[in-house]
Each structure stands twice: as C-alpha cells, then as structure tokens.
C-alpha cells in the first residue's frame, strides 16, 4: 500500500479536496471513481460538482463541464469557484458574449481581483479587441504587479501585436519564473515561428516533445517543422520568412525582372524564365511531396 494513500474521506469537503488533488496530478480515472462514490453520498454538493466539471474539462468535454457549472450556479449564484471556471470555459469555447457578461458581473462583485481583470482581458483578446485586452491586463498588473495571469495575457498580446523580432518583456518575465511551463514554451515556439526562425522553433518543439512524449500537439509540430527545416527546403526560406508577402514579391520580382532582363540581355532572359518558373513549381509541389515522404 502506498504510504501516501489518503484515508477514506468522510465529508463532502474532504472528498472534494481529495478529488481535486488527484485531478491536479492528472489521475483522472482515480478521481472519477472517487467522485462517483462521493456524489452517491452528496449528490448536490457544489464543490464536488465543480470537481466533476474539472474532470470533464481535462477530458476535453467542455460542453458537459459547462452544463454542470451552470447547474451549480443556478443553485448557488454566488459560488465564486464555479463562476470563475465557467468564465474560463466559455472563453475557450468562444461563447464570448456570455463570458463577458459573467466577467463583468464577477468584477462588479470583486473589484480588487487582478485575476478577474486578466480573465476579462483574455475574453477581449479572444474577441480580437486588442487595445482593450492590453488595457485590462495592465489594469490587473496595476492591482498586483506580479500577477501571473495578467502577465500571460500581456505576453499573448505581445506575440500577436508586436512587430517581428521584438521581444516580449512579459514573456521574458514569465519564463524567468516558470522556465518549464508548457503553455509559455508553446508561446515562445509560436513567437519564433512568427519571426521566421524555423530552426529555433524546431529545437523548442523537440524539447517540448521530449518532456511530453504523449502530446499529439508537440508531435505534430515537430513533424511539420522537421519538414520545413529539411535541407531541400532551404530555397524556400524567403517564402517561409515572409509568407504570402514573400509570394507577392516573388511574383512581382519575377515578372518585372524578367521583362527588364528581356530588354537588357535577351540571351539571359530565357534561362532566367526557366529558373523562375522552376522555382515557382518547386515551391508549390515540393513541400507537400516532402511532407508525405518524411511522414510516411
């Protein structure tokens, strides 16, 4: 028997605490069993139902989690934990109008809570209202300068808004505090990709896959980036770096350049046209072929 195995809980509160600890350690199956047992004795306990919603959310069953939380709130409208968790799930599910109403209600009841301002900022970010999201995150930091949640939202704002190559102060601060945090490292990899630094992004993604070998997200990203970083993809660098803008420049440069070359040096125009056309065909055809070959 595990020396750390807890005693059989006897109250709803004790059950809820134990289920919560199991969920914190991602032991969903054990948590579910204990929760079933607990709800048999205390079917209407709000904290137990909240843990049930957590278990659902961990299994990506957000709709079920939302339904449970709405039932809890219907019975106990002031249950802060249920409301805060519901806000987070509504934001994730894109139910932004309802999320905003809930956020404003919670802030009205708890005006000094930096986490609530940060949660509302996240709703605004998801609604693509960037100035308001940033202002709300900064308001949260004004209430508490080291608020983790607000710094994370600010880091997201930076990754979205700042020009390529600009460092995010918020992201650097967070990484200094939580160097192993998966979500932050995911944001760093995203920022590297947006800056066109495919190689560093691949290194970051490989490191994350080493830490989380069962993660389909990191596996998929490492596979995609391995394709992008293959030596046969080197000529694609301008298109990888600048995306569709690079494609526009390629087309404009090719057409205009070839016309000018045709006037200035007709002998070179033919070979140059073939080269340019070859590059265009390569850029369309080679990446999907390489992807199929490498990921077979």
């Amino acid at each position: 028997m595990d020396a750390a195995e807890p005693l059989q809980p006897s109250s709803a509160e004790a059950y809820a605490r134990q289920v919560g600890e199991l969920l914190d350690r991602r032991r969903s199956a054990q948590a579910r069993n204990l929760l079933r047992e607990a709800l048999a004795s205390f079917p209407d306990d709000a904290d137990l139902l909240l843990q049930g919603a957590r278990a659902d959310a961990l299994e990506d069953r957000n709709a079920s989690a939302i339904e449970t939380l709405q039932r809890v709130i219907a019975r106990q409208p002031d249950h802060f934990g249920a409301q805060a968790f519901l806000l987070s799930l509504l934001t994730e599910e894109g139910e932004l109008a309802e999320a905003e109403r809930l956020a404003l209600g919670l802030i009205g009841a708890h005006p000094q809570s930096p986490d609530l301002y940060a949660a509302y900022a996240r709703v605004m970010l998801r609604a693509l209202q960037f100035p308001k999201a940033r202002a709300l995150a900064q308001e949260a930091l004004h209430l508490h300068p080291e608020n983790d949640f607000a710094l994370r939202v600010l880091a997201l704002c930076d990754v979205i808004e700042l020009p390529r190559g600009t460092d995010s102060t918020a992201l650097r601060r967070l990484l200094a505090e939580h160097p192993e945090d998966q979500h932050l490292l995911s944001l760093v990899v995203t920022a590297l990709l947006q800056n066109g630094d495919q190689r560093a992004a691949l290194r970051g993604a490989r490191e994350m896959l080493r830490q989380h070998p069962d993660s389909p997200h990191w596996l998929n990203l490492v596979q995609q980036l391995s394709v992008q970083n293959h030596w046969t993809m080197k000529p694609m660098w301008p298109l990888q770096r600048w995306g569709w803008t690079g494609s526009v420049v390629l087309w404009v440069g090719g057409v205009v350049g070839l016309r000018v070359l045709g006037q200035v040096s007709p002998a070179l125009a033919g070979p140059a046209s073939v080269l340019w056309l070859g590059y265009v065909v390569y850029s369309w055809v080679w990446p999907p072929l390489l992807r199929r070959w490498l990921l077979r």
Partner: peptide
C-alpha cells in the same frame, strides 16, 4: 474598460 463590447453574439469578430 468595464463597458460591455461583445454583449451580443453579432458583435463578436
């Protein structure tokens, strides 16, 4: 900042 801006789903980008 505490005025609703996406109070209707039609307002959401």
């Amino acid at each position: 900042l505490l005025r609703p801006t996406v109070s209707e789903p039609a307002q959401v980008a």
